[in-house]
Amino acid sequence: MRFRGIVLGFLGVATVVAAWDLYKGLGPEQGVLLGDTRILPRTTDLAMPHSWEMVQRFGEPVTSLSGAPDAFNAVFDASMFSLGLAARGWLLGVVVGLLLALVMSRFRIVESALLPWVVLSQTVPLIAIAPLVRRWGSEIEIGSHLWTSEDSVAVIAAYLAFFPVAVGALRGLKSPEATHLDLMRSFGIGWWRTLLTLRIPASVPYLLPALRLGAASAVIGAVVAEVSIGLKGGLGRMVIDYAVAASGDPAKPWAPIFGAVAIGLVAAGAVGLLGLVLRPFRLTGVAP
């Protein structure tokens, strides 16, 4: 089963690559137009570099300056930097999301009061909250730690990551059937032990996809926040910097995009490992 999954995965990627290069090779120079609307892109070298050019580009120096590192090294470093921030944001988002879900599941009134805000929070554009986070952050002093732009980026990543976790965990914590809840009551145990014995294990099947979604959100949040905050060193700034070079070096802007895809996969994969550990709890749905 596992082997088949891997093969299918590779086939999927290969199909995309083949479609790209075929269209690039055979498609019209000006792209496909429907009226005035271009429905398929131009196939010029500028707009669509060949896939192998993009791969090759990784082996070449970032700039023509002497001593410039390989594009691969540069992208790798930037990816690790962004991944680190995304991981910090994810952790923070998971903690906040779980706590919110806990109080919402405990107190009906808190759920009614809080849930609309949780949903609304996701409609605020990131660009708008970035300066706010930075300004408020600069007022915060924790011991001798000074608020840095990295902290701002992590907080913004957390802002995106907490949402699926809060919603998923809330659904999971409220998922036990009436029979199970009656049973816990008949055992004479209170809210806290019911939480540990029943609600948390029952929430695992809801929690795992939520955590994975949270990881993907944290990666996007980190990369976008790097741009909004203006933090150097990560993929966000690299996307902007490399885009400038597009006219003379069309394959170059694609390098950090692949970096972002890669850390997204790593993040989702790491959560997948968590799923393996929690496997016993994924069993649900006994026939009555």
């Binding site: 059937e177 029979t179 199970h180 009656d182 049973l183 009551r185 008949s186 055992f187 004479g188 014995t197 029943l198 294990p201 695992v204 016993p280 709890f281 994924r282 069993l283 649900t284 749905g285 006994v286 009555p288």
Partner: peptide, 29 residues
């Protein structure tokens, strides 16, 4: 009586915890 566990209860739905084994379910109380 409930707090003192004077009774045991069974419903139409078995209400077993799916992530626990048979032995794990029986020993739960």
């Amino acid at each position: 009586a409930r707090i003192d566990q004077e009774y045991g209860i069974a419903f139409q739905q078995s209400g077993l915890l799916p992530w626990r084994t048979v032995a794990g379910n029986i020993e739960l109380p």
